[in-house]
Amino acid sequence: MRREPPRRIADYAPLAFPAAMLVLFFVIPFSTMIAVSFFRRQQGGFYTPDFVLDNYGRFLSAFFGGVLGFSLMLAIMVAVICVAIAFPFTYLLTKSSRRVQIVWLVCLLSILSLSEVIIGFAWSTLFSRTAGITNLLVAVGLMAEPQALLPGFGAVLTAMTYQAMPYTILVLYPALVRLDPTLLEAARTLGASPLRGFFDIIVPALRNTIMATLIMVFVFALGSYLLPQILGRPQHWTLSVHITDQAIYQSNMPFAAAMAVFLVLISLALVGLTLLVGSRREVT
């Protein structure tokens, strides 16, 4: 059966549903947000349609610059750590028996069912002085007395890595399963130790997958706003936390929208830059 090119308007009908969904759930909300970001803020919860740049102007300060920089740095660190741990782990997972794989994947999927709130509270307990893991270390004799490991950057980073890890593994898994197992064997017959072969061959052969995963985890981590609040000090609050503050607590929708638009643009720019660098290397 040959596919006919669409000729009449009705031939495009199958596209209507996805197009409508895209408009309804992405184009309209995002356009609204962009529009609101230019509205005039009325002190105390209202805004009036207008075209002002004040909201963006307020964002362009050293303070919010610092917050943005921190948010990006945190998201990048989470992405790098997640991929650095998940990649070898997933590789070994694909090499293990079907049974072991299923058990691990089920466990990982069940972590996905945990909400950010539960993860946050679980880690705040684990890092607490009164009930946390340091008590175990004391019991074993490795520490003199229990310590609080939060609030702090390490706590935020750990919990966010934990939260993003299942996504990372599940994104890497299909690519690693499909990977030709003889690639590493070939490297070994050519004189590479298994470890060297892994870094020389497996990692570069999956460069594009790794890039895509890094970007996905980065974007995912950028949106995290609960864990930095629960586990961090105010200087560890991400831009997402400040956006939530403005939108929910200060009722300052125009400013929140402006920050959100800025965050989206910066993320897109970073993703674009990454892809650009990636494709350059492909060509040479």
Binding site: R41, Q43, G44, R58, F63, P234, Q235, W237, D245, Q250
Partner: peptide
């Protein structure tokens, strides 16, 4: 909080997160 909420909020945020 009615008349100066944005200013107070900004100062406050900068104070605790700065």
């Amino acid at each position: 909080y009615q008349t100066k909420s944005d200013w107070l909020n900004q100062k406050w945020t900068e104070m605790i997160a700065g």
